[in-house]
Design a protein around this nucleic acid. Sequence first.
DNA 1: TCTGCCCCCGGTT
DNA 2: AACCGGGGGCAGA
Length: 216
Amino acid sequence: MNPPIAPNVDDSQLIFATGECSLGQVLIAGTSDGNSKTRVSYLALGDDRESLLIDLATAHSNRKRVETKSVFQAELAAAIEFIEQPAEPLRLPVNLFGTDFQKQVWTELAQTEPGETVTYRELADRIGSPGSSRAVGAACGQNQIALAIPCHRAVRSDGKDSGFRWGLDRKRELLRREKKVSGGSVEPANNQLHLAGFETTPAESLSVARTTRTQP
DNA sequence: TCTGCCCCCGGTT
DNA sequence: AACCGGGGGCAGA
């Protein structure tokens, strides 16, 4: 149960970039060692750029934050591409900051494929900690990297709505798109749930996903 | 069946 | 000690 390595106490500078997609604004942040080696440690979705910047500043208040378009260009494009057309998992070079338990949950989530869902209970079982479904839910909520760690695929076992850090509407919409793209049937009965404004738009091009695995 | 409680769960702050 | 993106049981609709 080692202590989490809080990004907050790391004084290396945080590089970030923002972009736009059909689900709103996207913000991606991480580090670069200067040798074009980058790692994503933060990926968020939101309604507007300003609130995303505020969230980032709150989460990393002790770090220098530098906006650059070039560094995470490919990763940002890949994230947007995933949002528009989630055919395959979004794989990014990531940095996970969290407890062992949290990393286990996140790593297990990363094993899921687009279009499938897992219950918190099932996740708890898979990481060898049956009965800790509530803790699993809490761990999902602590996830800092949207999409790449697909916590939107974690659902309640009783079918009720659970939460999503970046908006429950987005969670539903992401799942709907994944099911659609992965060839599964799109439940027609539930289709009226989509919010207006979350219309599917043509994808952007570029499919730069890197195949790096998680875990520093 | 389908709600809404109530009480318990395990990990984290 | 309190907080949770949970779960199961059980009463009343």
